[in-house]
């Protein structure tokens, strides 16, 4: 069977049928993205490896629970990856809340990390999303970056920014909706 032609959803259906090669194909497609996200949030290679492995094991165990009508596969996958990474991040910072003034600490591009074979593709996706983020109003971008990359809860952000909780919630909601609209059909995941 030539899995390279399979959509993500078709691979997932194979995984429900306990097809390990289908999982490996999804791993080949998305492990770099999952690992990159975790590595940038945790700054710990070992922990990021654990997270990445857990994420794909979760895909294996939970494949049947994915409902295509509720969103794209990549949304589901990156949701699992982010949630798992946030858990790890909060475990590490419990009792010594980390201080993140500038999320660019997480986003700095280190060219030595980038593998040449996929660099242009990855950089194009990176640039596309970074542009969409930069196009957001600064107040919306700040709350999204603090929560998604920094692991802060909305209550913590409210306190840190000295803004009403309702305002933080509204900015998160508006920012996410704008991001979705700006990036519709622009990324690899939408072409599967």
């Amino acid at each position: 069977m030539n899995y390279t032609e399979f959509t993500d959803e078709a691979l997932l259906a194979q995984i429900v049928d306990a097809d390990r090669l289908a999982l490996e194909c999804l791993y080949q497609r998305y492990s770099t993205r999952v690992f990159s996200l975790s590595y940038r949030m945790l700054s710990d290679q070992g922990a990021s490896e654990e997270v990445t492995q857990d994420v794909f094991l979760n895909v294996w165990r939970r494949a049947a629970s994915y409902k295509s009508g509720r969103g794209k596969f990549t949304t589901w996958l990156f949701g699992i990856a982010h949630h798992r990474t946030i858990d790890e991040l909060r475990k590490r910072t419990r009792g010594r809340r980390h201080s993140i003034e500038n999320v660019d600490d997480f986003l700095n591009l280190e060219s030595s990390d980038i593998q040449p074979a996929d660099a242009a593709v990855a950089n194009s996706e990176y640039a596309t999303v970074r542009k969409a983020l930069l196009d957001l109003p600064e107040a919306q971008r700040a709350v999204i970056e603090m929560s998604y990359f920094g692991g802060f809860t909305q209550a913590e952000i409210s306190e840190k920014l000295d803004q009403p909780l309702g305002t933080v919630k509204t900015r998160m909601r508006l920012g996410l909706k704008k991001l979705r609209a700006a990036l519709a059909s622009k990324l690899r995941s939408t072409e599967q």
Binding site: T32, F35, R40, G79, N123, R130, F149
Partner: peptide
């Protein structure tokens, strides 16, 4: 909203495991 958030996974530079 999840779709908007999912896009953020692309906002970090690529690091190969």
């Amino acid at each position: 909203l999840m779709e908007g958030a999912g896009n953020l996974a692309f906002a970090v530079p690529s690091v190969t495991p």
